[in-house]
């Protein structure tokens, strides 16, 4: 949940007065044109960048007011899939997925090995344990990144432009995977994207950021927005410009 959030780089304000709530089990879409601050908002949600003003709440706890230890505990419930996958390039896939497990659990090496294979199997990469990220295609890297994000069974999953750089079929498969994970793990999912197909297939709630007014100009279920939104910018975005403002 976000309340009165203002984001800025130095004195340059990116977005101001953002207030919205993500419900448990939602697939929440952050959308908006290029440069509207979608990824920056995500960085605030996952604790990479402190807000200039306002707060981010998780189950009644403020992420940025909390003590460092407390914040770390909140952040440990996050799984994040970065735009480029962001796998640690000096480690194999298995090591990538295993690192969070090694750091935060007391599992034995063989238990970890089994868990790693399981997570990789979930994203269809079983048997690729010993590969380095650079040996994989873009789509595979993304899926491996997802396996790592899920390593600690997080209850909040964040995706930064999951379909960027993927062909339509891989991107569709990733959408299916996100839906499947939400349903089976009961996780809450936050997705930054401007891919209309994804927005309408998976989104259950959304917020629309506007670069000109520097604030959110709409929120709600994407399909409802398409049907009912009065805002010309939102309509233009959701109809791919067919309905010009």
């Amino acid at each position: 949940m976000v309340r009165d959030l203002t984001m800025a780089y130095g004195s340059v304000v990116i977005q101001r007065d953002l207030t919205f709530t993500v419900r448990r089990g939602d697939i929440f879409i952050i959308m908006g044109g290029s440069g509207s601050g979608k990824s920056t908002l995500l960085r605030h949600l996952i604790g990479l960048q402190a807000p200039a003003q306002g707060e981010v709440w998780y189950d009644g706890q403020s992420l940025w007011q909390a003590e460092p230890d407390e914040r770390e505990r909140i952040m440990r419930r996050f799984g994040v899939l970065y735009q480029s996958g962001a796998l640690w390039s000096s480690m194999t896939l298995a090591e990538n997925v295993a690192l969070p497990l090694e750091q935060y659990t007391n599992l034995s090496p063989s238990q970890i090995r089994d868990l790693v294979s399981f997570k990789l199997a979930l994203v269809g990469l079983e048997g690729f344990e010993a590969y380095y990220p650079s040996e994989l295609s873009g789509g595979m890297q993304k899926r491996a990144g997802l396996a790592r994000a899920m390593a600690l069974d997080p209850d909040m999953l964040f995706f930064d432009e999951p379909s960027a750089g993927l062909d339509p079929i891989s991107s569709r498969r990733l959408d299916d995977l996100i839906l499947e994970l939400r349903d089976s793990l009961g996780a809450t999912v936050v997705v930054v994207t401007h891919e209309l197909a994804s927005i309408f297939t998976i989104g259950t709630n959304s917020v629309f950021l506007d670069a000109d007014t520097k604030t959110m100009i709409a929120q709600g279920h994407p399909k409802t927005l398409l049907a009912e939104s009065q805002d010309p910018k939102v309509r233009q975005f959701l109809t791919r410009g067919d309905q010009r403002p």
Binding site: L48, V80, Y82, L87
Partner: peptide, 20 residues
């Protein structure tokens, strides 16, 4: 070069969100 590449690839961000 190593740390720089890791910054560019968001690998550092990935570490941070993992609490490392």
């Amino acid at each position: 070069a190593q740390l720089g590449t890791m910054t560019v690839n968001q690998e550092i961000d990935a570490l941070t969100t993992m609490g490392l």
